[in-house]
Design a protein around this nucleic acid. Structure first.
Lengths: 227, 227
DNA sequence: TCATGTGAACCGGTTCACAGCC
DNA sequence: GGCTGTGAACCGGTTCACATGA
C-alpha cells in the first residue's frame, strides 16, 4: 500500500495527455484567465470552443479527460477549470532553462521569456563569440559553450533552448544531454539525435513559413476553382 | 479539352499533402541537399529515415505519395528526389511577405529570413512606434500599421508574419485579411478569427516551452519508475 | 429545452507485412 | 538477400449522437 505523497497526487493515475491536447489546454487557460479578469464566472463548451478555435465536443472531451466536471445547466466554472488546468500544466518545482546561442533569435527568446513565466526561468545563456561571453543580456549572464556541462550542473538546468546555427546544433545538443538535461526546444533547422528519454520539440521558422505559403496557395487555388 | 498550362501540370491531380508530411518533406529536402553537396548520389529509405528521424516505411510512403520512384537495388536518386520535392514545395511565383511588429522577435525574424530564401522575400515591415516608422531594419522599410492596407496592396503582399503583443493581434490580422492576404504566421499568443480561406499557423513560444517542460517531466518520472 | 458526459463510430495518418524485383 | 511499392491492419484522436439531468 502506497502512503507517501508522490507526483500523481493531484493527477489522474492513467491520464494520457497528447501534444495536441496540451496546446489546447494552454489556449483554454489563456482565455479563461482573460474571462476571469472580466469577472465572467461560467462558460459553456460552445463558447470556449468558439474562443479557442475548437469544437464544443472537443472542449467537452478535453475537460472530461482532465477529470473536471461542469453542469448541464450552468456550464463550467471558470475559476475551477482554470485551477484544474494549471494544476496539470504547471510544474511542482520550477524548470530551470538555459539558452544556447545568443544571436538575434536568442535575444528575442530572452526578451520574450524574461520575467514572463516564473515557472520556467532562463537562468543562463551560452555562446561562442568572445564579445558575448561574460556579458549580461536581458538580465542573464552569458557563458562560453565549452563551460556548458559545468555551469549547467551548478545551475541545475533542466531544459535548454537551442538557437545556434544548424551546423552547431547537434554538438550543443549532445553537450546538453551529457549534462543531464531532460528537454530541448530546438530552433535550429537540424534533426537532433538524442536518447529517447530526452524530449525534443523542433520549431523551424523557415519550414513553418514554407508551410504557410504552401497551404495559403492551395487555399487560393481552391478559391479560384469555386469562384 | 484542357490545353492551357495550369498549376497542376507538375503535380499529381489528387495528391493530398498533410501538414505533418509537409514538415517531413522539408526535412528530407534539407538533408538531401547536404548529401548532394557531399557528392552522395543515392540513398535508401532506412538511411534517410534515420537522418530525418522517421521510420523507413514512412519515408517510402512519403516518396510514393509525391509520385517519385526508387529502385530496390539502388534506393532513391538523391538529385531526382530533391528536384521532385522542390517542385512541390517551391511556389511558381514568389510569395511576398510582410512583417507586422518590429520588436525583438520581429527583428529576429527579419534577420532569420533576410536573404535566406528568395521564394519568400520579406518586402515590408509595420509597427506603431513612431521611432520605428520610416526606419529601415535589416534592409526592410518599416511603415505605420495604419498604412497596411495601402502598402500591402501596392507591394502585393501574400503572407504576413504577426509578431505584435497579443492584444493587438486580432486587429492587425483583420487588417491583413481586408488587404486580401492568404496566409498568416502568428507568433502572438492569441486565437485569430479569420475567414476559413485564410490559412493561419500559430507559433506560441511560451506554450511550446511549456510543452517541452511537461513532456520532459513525464519522461523523467517514467525514468524514475523504470530505474 | 438545452447543456454536459460519454460510448461508439469515424477518419487520417502510421505501421505492418508481403509481393515483386534487382 | 535486401530493397522498394503498396494493400491492409492498426492506432490515436476527433466527432457523433444520445442518455441523463437541471
Amino acid at each position: 500500500m502506497q502512503l507517501s505523497t508522490h507526483t500523481q497526487d493531484l493527477r489522474q493515475p492513467s491520464m494520457v495527455i497528447s501534444s495536441r491536447m496540451l496546446e489546447r489546454l494552454s489556449a483554454y487557460r489563456r482565455l479563461l484567465n482573460q474571462l476571469l479578469v472580466e469577472h465572467r464566472e461560467r462558460i459553456y463548451s460552445h463558447e470556449l470552443g468558439q474562443l479557442a478555435g475548437a469544437t464544443p465536443a472537443q472542449v467537452r472531451r478535453d475537460v472530461m479527460t482532465i477529470g473536471f466536471t461542469g453542469s448541464p445547466a450552468r456550464g463550467y466554472d471558470i475559476a475551477g477549470l482554470l485551477r484544474r488546468i494549471s494544476e496539470l500544466l504547471d510544474p511542482q518545482t520550477e524548470s530551470r532553462v538555459a539558452l544556447i546561442g545568443v544571436g538575434y533569435l536568442g535575444r528575442a527568446v530572452l526578451d520574450y521569456f524574461s520575467g514572463r513565466n516564473p515557472h520556467y526561468p532562463i537562468v543562463a545563456a551560452f555562446d561562442v563569440a568572445p564579445e558575448k561571453v561574460g556579458r549580461v543580456v536581458h538580465g542573464v549572464r552569458c557563458h562560453h559553450v565549452d563551460e556548458f556541462e559545468h555551469v549547467a550542473r551548478e545551475a541545475r538546468i533542466d531544459l535548454v533552448i537551442i538557437a545556434v546555427p544548424a551546423p552547431a546544433a547537434q554538438d550543443v545538443a549532445s553537450r546538453a544531454v551529457r549534462a543531464g538535461i531532460l528537454g530541448i526546444l530546438n530552433f535550429a533547422p537540424a534533426t537532433l539525435h538524442v536518447p529517447s528519454d530526452v524530449y525534443v520539440e523542433d520549431v523551424d521558422l523557415a519550414a513553418t513559413l514554407e508551410k504557410v505559403a504552401f497551404f495559403a496557395r492551395s487555399n487560393a487555388s481552391r478559391r479560384e476553382v469555386t469562384a
